[in-house]
């Protein structure tokens, strides 16, 4: 049950805005369902005892994929360049955004959608930068889906020609399967994790377009082979664009920033 309005939305996602404790919006799963429930009389093909086989040949994720394409169309029409940031919890997604957004904001408008199971902590941190931000709380959900992003983007005041950063729920497994309508997927790993992570979670690295190795300032203190990690990532996906940086010290950030600026210019 929702602790704010008392309605029963077991496991449903909720949108929140930082600093507005009375603002919350439920993402209703059934809102986009167009299917009216007809009851047909099918007297003409009556089968005794045995059932009738109906062929569907339908992608299981079709509903999500169709909605993701609608999101993609919306972004395209408004020339919004959307990135889906994916990683395990604690690899530094929010810290990276905090560090890079102030520089990017000088060149073009930036907006952020934050995904977490609970709290508006991340959205609060991003709001301090003065960019439009909305928090999606997925409740028990382990990933963002296209419907949540669809609702969030309508609530977010985005300018045309913006960069939209969507920070997914910290999880290296489930979010890989759900297209949100983004232009590119960005996967982040940090040197405090294992350098075999791309091999352990290949689906995520296979789906990603960009891989960022974060916290390289800690390399002297941990047993992490950055070259080996890169090689592992490339084995899973040889198209990966690779960056090594420290969101804390700022080392390596310029390369990512220039690359993003280049993408925004082409976009």
């Amino acid at each position: 049950m929702c602790d704010t309005c008392g309605c029963s939305t077991e496991g449903g996602a909720v949108l929140r805005k930082p600093g507005q404790s009375d603002y919350h919006l439920h993402v209703n799963e059934h809102e986009n369902a167009h299917g009216e429930h007809h009851s047909h009389e099918h007297g003409d093909h009556h089968h005794e005892g045995s059932g009738r086989k109906v062929v569907l040949e339908q992608d299981v994720l079709q509903k999500n994929n169709l909605l993701a394409e609608r999101n993609r169309g919306y972004f395209e029409a408004r020339k919004i360049f959307a990135l889906n940031f994916l990683s395990s919890p604690g690899s530094g997604k929010t810290s990276l955004l905090e560090k890079i957004i102030p520089a990017l904001q000088q060149r073009f408008p930036v907006a952020v959608i934050e995904g977490d199971q609970q709290t508006t902590n991340d959205a609060d941190r991003i709001q301090a930068l003065g960019v439009p931000v909305i928090q999606i709380n997925t409740g028990s959900g382990c990933h963002l889906d296209a419907l949540m992003v669809n609702r969030a983007m309508k609530e977010l005041e985005m300018q045309n020609n913006s960069l939209l950063c969507i920070e997914n729920v910290g999880n290296l497994v489930c979010p890989a399967l759900f297209d949100l309508g983004e232009a590119l997927k960005v996967v982040i790993i940090s040197v405090t994790e294992g350098d075999d992570k791309p091999l352990k979670y290949p689906t995520m690295f296979h789906e990603a377009d960009i891989c960022i190795l974060n916290k390289i300032d800690l390399l002297p203190y941990v047993e992490f082979d950055a070259a080996k990690c890169r090689e592992n990532a490339m084995r899973v996906n040889h198209h990966l664009e690779w960056f090594e940086l420290s969101a804390k010290t700022g080392e390596g950030l310029a390369a990512l920033r220039e690359w993003l600026e280049g993408k925004m210019a082409q976009h």
Binding site: E41, V54, L56, V60, L61, K63, C142, H143, V173
Partner: peptide, 27 residues
């Protein structure tokens, strides 16, 4: 556990079509 939300989408897709087909139940 994305299998749960995936299971729900399967049930939703199947049920929608089953109703259109006037099914009593899906075996």
């Amino acid at each position: 556990m994305h299998e749960m939300s995936i299971a729900l989408s399967i049930v939703e897709a199947v049920e929608e079509r089953a109703r259109q087909e006037g099914a009593g139940w899906v075996s």
